[in-house]
Design a protein around this nucleic acid. Structure first.
Lengths: 142, 142
DNA sequence: GTTGTTGCAAACAGTTTGCACGAAA
DNA sequence: TTTCGTGCAAACTGTTTGCAACAAC
């Protein structure tokens, strides 16, 4: 009997805790994203996973589920549509390479000063933010 | 003869400078977005503009053109798809009300410290960022 | 007059849904 | 054994394209 990787066990528990089942398909979808630097758009993921006999409806449903439970987030590609990437940590933001699309997560973003200022100036109650930083990764700089 | 609003004249010049024509349709599309607090998704804009006999292909083409020349940008709605809003200024960022969708632009965002830190820590050359701040606007707080 | 733009409709791409079967718990 | 999840295909929604007529310059 094969030992499962810790993140797989953890994800299985996460699903079950929510009354959902942890199926081989869900495991396969998660692994695809977890092991990718650039993430995938849904059509791309469908293309890859169909070789494992995973139907497109399952891909849609699973990606949405993973996103809702906070395991996937998305970034924009050049065309403006979404590519999904695995979240390593809570409250992380993506640093995206504009050439190869590689995504590196960072956590140290302090927008509290800006948010306080905006609250005072606009009367809004600030509830959150979405931040993507763009750049060129070391590999693509050559 | 009717005097044109200054922003219309300016937009006309902007198009012509690029060798493009400034048609009544383009003017109408621009005005729709300019006069809206929440902006529109493309299907919404198509719906509104079809009463003015503007075809959907024209809406798509014009919104894309306005976006490319920096007159429109987009924000995300709850479903994660795009709503286009008029840019008042260059380098502005949107502050979006999560209840009513109203968008207020702000400019004072200083991410230079964060960006320098990321450059050192990751080896990326930072080229830009996308920031959306979310909140509840004064009207919706009641 | 020249050439970019428009509206239409058809083609296309992407997403959602209903359902019978299978498999996780 | 009891649901929930799956794959399939059909339906649907959103987007793009080709083209003849038109209008901005």
């Amino acid at each position: 009997m094969k030992t499962k990787e810790p993140d797989i066990v953890d994800l299985g528990n996460h699903f079950r805790r929510l009354g959902m089942r942890f199926t081989p398909q869900r495991e396969a979808v998660w692994k695809l994203f977890r092991d990718s630097q650039r993430g995938y758009s849904i059509p791309e993921a469908i293309e890859v996973l169909k070789d494992q006999n995973i139907g497109m409806a399952t891909v849609y449903r699973t990606v949405m589920a993973l996103q809702e439970i906070g395991r996937l987030s998305w970034v924009h590609d050049q065309n403006g549509d979404h590519r999904y990437v695995a979240c390593k940590s809570m409250h992380g933001h993506p640093l995206v390479c504009e050439k190869c699309g590689r995504v590196q997560e960072f956590v140290s973003c302090d927008l509290s000063v800006l948010e306080r200022l905006l609250a005072v100036e606009t009367g809004f109650t600030i509830t959150g933010h979405r931040l993507e930083v763009l750049g060129i990764c070391p590999v693509c700089q050559v």
